[in-house]
C-alpha cells in the first residue's frame, strides 16, 4: 500500500479496500477461515450450549499506557465470554474508520488485536470495514462479537449468589480507569499508571475444577467494583459487605485517586474478575487463582449477607453504603 492515510475509497469495496484487507487485516489476523474471505465464517461448533456476546469500543485516547483500543476490543469480548463460563472460540471484528486515519496507527491496533487473540487461542474469523467522512467517527470505532461454548458443570449467573457466599477479587483495582483519565485529560502523572487490560480466560479455566462452587463471575469494567456488587445484589436479592482493609489496590493508584478526587472503588478495570463462591471453598479457590500471574494479589474481600444493600466496612469499623454512581467519575477539586 502506498497511502499513509485512510481515504473514503478504502471503504468503497474496490481495489484499495482489497489491498487494505489483504495487507493490514489478513496480514495480522491470518487464518484460513478469514482468508477465505467469504461473506460469513463457517464454524464447526460442538453440540454444547453456545455463549454469544457483542461490544463496541469508542475509547479515547486510542493508545494508552498498557494497551490500545484494539487490545481492549479483543480482551473485552473474550472476557465477557469467559465470565459466563464459556471457552471463547471465535471473534468477529467491525471497523468504522474516519477518513484521514493514519494507516500506521491502524496497523499497530490490528497488531494488538492479533496478539491478544493469539494469547487466548482464538481466531478473528470474519470482519467488516467502513470508512466515513472526516469528523464523522472521531478516529476509530471497533465492534467485536464473540462466540464460545459453555463449559460443562459451570453454571453462573448474577441471579445465583446466595447469602453467605464469599466475594473474591482477582487483583489490584482502578488501574484502567486512572490510566485512561490521565492520558485523555493529559493530567501528567508519573510514572504512568498502566491499564490492566488482559484476557482473563486462562485465569477462569484454572478454576474449572471448582465449577459447581462458583455461583457468579463478573468483570468490573465501567463503574468498577461498586457497579458489579450492586448488579449482583439486585439480581440475586442479597446484600453484600466488603471490607476496606481487604481490597487489593496499589498505593500509587490510591494516591492518584486522592489527588484527582476519584473513588477507586468505582474506576474501571479490564483484566479483573469478581467471583462469588461457596464460602466453604473460598480459600481453595483463592489458592488456585493466586498461581496465575494475573491474580497474584487476589483476595477474599467480603461476602453476601442478608438484606439488599451493598456496603463497606470502613477502617474505622463502621459501615457506609456503596450505591451506584450516576455518571462517569471526573476529577474534582472539592
Amino acid at each position: 500500500m502506498r497511502q499513509d492515510r485512510i481515504s473514503l475509497s478504502h471503504g468503497s469495496g474496490g481495489s484499495l479496500m482489497a489491498d487494505l484487507i489483504d495487507e493490514v487485516f489478513i496480514g495480522s489476523f491470518g487464518n484460513k477461515i478469514l482468508g477465505a474471505l467469504d461473506d460469513a465464517a463457517r464454524l464447526n461448533l460442538p453440540k454444547n450450549k453456545i455463549a454469544f456476546t457483542t461490544d463496541s469500543y469508542t475509547v479515547k485516547p486510542l493508545f494508552f499506557p498498557g494497551g490500545d483500543i484494539g487490545k481492549l476490543a479483543v480482551c473485552g469480548t473474550l472476557n465477557d465470554l469467559s465470565v459466563m463460563g464459556a471457552k471463547p472460540l471465535a471473534i468477529s471484528v467491525s471497523f468504522i474508520i474516519e477518513e484521514g486515519f493514519l494507516i500506521s496507527d491502524l496497523r499497530k491496533i490490528v497488531g494488538s488485536m492479533a496478539a491478544a487473540a493469539k494469547e487466548c487461542g482464538v481466531w478473528i474469523v470474519t470482519g467488516d470495514t467502513k470508512v466515513v467522512g472526516r469528523k464523522e467517527a472521531d478516529g476509530l470505532f471497533i465492534n467485536t462479537s464473540g462466540v464460545g461454548t459453555l463449559h460443562d458443570g459451570m453454571s453462573v449467573s448474577c441471579r445465583f449468589v446466595k447469602e453467605g457466599d464469599a466475594v473474591i477479587l482477582s487483583g489490584e483495582i482502578a488501574e484502567h480507569g486512572v490510566a485512561i483519565l490521565d492520558s485523555r485529560e493529559k493530567l501528567g502523572l508519573e510514572p504512568k499508571i498502566k491499564s490492566d487490560v488482559a484476557c482473563v480466560y486462562h485465569l477462569i479455566k484454572s478454576c474449572l475444577g471448582f465449577s459447581k462452587y462458583i455461583h457468579a463471575m463478573r468483570d468490573p469494567t465501567r463503574g468498577g467494583l461498586v457497579s458489579v456488587l450492586n448488579e449482583i445484589a439486585r439480581a440475586s436479592g442479597v446484600g453484600i459487605k466488603i471490607c476496606e482493609n481487604d481490597i487489593p489496590v496499589k498505593k500509587e493508584v490510591v494516591s492518584a485517586c486522592d489527588l484527582l478526587g476519584l473513588d477507586y472503588l468505582s474506576m474501571a478495570n479490564e483484566g479483573k474478575v469478581v467471583f462469588f463462591v461457596d464460602s466453604g471453598k473460598a480459600k481453595s479457590i483463592l489458592s488456585r487463582l493466586r498461581k496465575n500471574k494475573l491474580a497474584k494479589k487476589a483476595r477474599i474481600i467480603g461476602r453476601a449477607v442478608k438484606g439488599r444493600q451493598v456496603f463497606l466496612e470502613t477502617r474505622l469499623g463502621t459501615k457506609r453504603l456503596l450505591p451506584l454512581l450516576e455518571g462517569e467519575a471526573l476529577p474534582r477539586i472539592c
Binding site: Q309, F311, T318, K319, R320, L321, P323, R332, C334
Partner: peptide, 20 residues
C-alpha cells in the same frame, strides 16, 4: 448534583440508621 452536596452524600452514603 455536587458529589459533596448534602443531599447527594445523604443519598449515596445513606443515613446512619440505614447503614448501621
Amino acid at each position: 448534583v455536587s458529589s459533596e452536596g448534602t443531599c447527594a452524600a445523604f443519598y449515596k452514603y445513606g443515613d446512619k440508621n440505614e447503614a448501621g
